[in-house]
């Protein structure tokens, strides 16, 4: 799945995004000038270690943190999300941009049936119960849930981890958003299920021609999924490019360090894995993320 994308106008365009949070010692800048765009039908991965600001970037696209101070622009299909009032933001959420969360159990409402939750994005936009149910059952089947019509009335705790993540994906895509952001969608799953879920996500995205932004710290899953990759560190993009190019010849020392930290099948036995902190260029950025 590494064919080159059909380039069009970017559906999601993040321009010079800065996000900071108020802390007891003043504003702390977490995202510091990120530029990133994702076109229709394109799959882009945003990678970085925890604390690099990748999740915050994703959350700002849907304006999820009310206490965050943002500047810059986040354009979805030409409209700036950061300029919208709360009513307009609500119209974007779910319908034009969907978000898949990391922990499938925590992100499902335990007292509502899976079907109720999958149909909710349609129901709150006025679709009839029967039509919504039909679509949800179709989608569940499409996502590889066996006997979807019966499972429709089950509760989240009756699903296995992998099945739950499919439900979460179904919820995110049922209203057919053009932009899909997946924030570490496979971190909570075991390796075998990870691959299945990612493959489904990819197929679905291709089918609906969605723009997908995959947030992850796992470089191993990026290669098979994304066409482009952006590497983030301390609130800034340090490298961006085609997956093949970045993997073959990383330009930034930090990217090289990250790639070095991934174990490979062809490795010499006893090869020491790199650690990003040890090998990253220590001069330009302090551990607190301050420019020196």
């Amino acid at each position: 799945m590494s064919g080159h994308p059909t380039q069009g106008t970017p559906l999601l365009r993040i321009q010079d995004l800065c996000v900071s949070y108020p802390t007891p010692d003043g504003l702390k800048e977490v995202v510091r000038g990120v530029d990133l765009s994702v076109s229709r039908g394109e799959r882009v991965a945003l990678v970085g270690e925890s604390g690099s600001g990748k999740s915050v970037t994703a959350r700002s696209v849907l304006r999820l943190d009310s206490e965050a101070r943002t500047s810059g622009r986040v354009l979805i299909d030409g409209q700036d999300v950061l300029e919208m009032n709360s009513k307009e933001v609500r119209r974007v959420r779910g319908a034009r941009a969907g978000l898949v969360f990391q922990d499938p159990l925590a992100s499902l409402n335990p007292v509502k049936t899976v079907g109720w939750q999958i149909t909710q994005p349609l129901r709150i936009r006025g679709m009839g119960r029967r039509e919504a149910r039909r679509r949800a059952v179709d989608l569940l089947g499409r996502l590889g849930v066996a006997d979807p019509a019966r499972r429709f009335d089950d509760y989240p705790h009756q699903f296995s981890g992998g099945m739950r993540q499919r439900v979460v994906i179904a919820i995110a895509v049922i209203a057919e958003p053009q932009v899909l952001i997946a924030d570490e969608p496979t971190t909570a799953l075991d390796v075998q299920v990870q691959a299945q879920v990612l493959e489904l996500l990819g197929e679905l995205a291709q089918e609906k021609d969605m723009a997908v932004l995959l947030i992850t710290h796992d470089l191993g899953i990026v290669a098979g999924f994304a066409q482009r990759v952006a590497v983030m560190r301390d609130g800034k993009l340090v490298e961006e490019g085609d997956v093949d190019r970045v993997y073959a010849s990383p330009r930034h020392p930090y990217t090289r360090a990250l790639l070095d930290a991934v174990p490979r099948i062809g490795d010499q036995p006893g090869r020491r894995l790199g650690t990003a902190a040890a090998t990253a260029d220590p001069v330009s950025v302090s551990p607190e993320g301050e420019e020196l």
Partner: peptide
């Protein structure tokens, strides 16, 4: 503050709902 409340908010669910 549960995550499922946030994930519902992400879907555009209104405050009342």
């Amino acid at each position: 503050d549960a995550e499922f409340v946030e994930s519902a908010r992400v879907l555009g669910v209104s405050r009342t709902r």
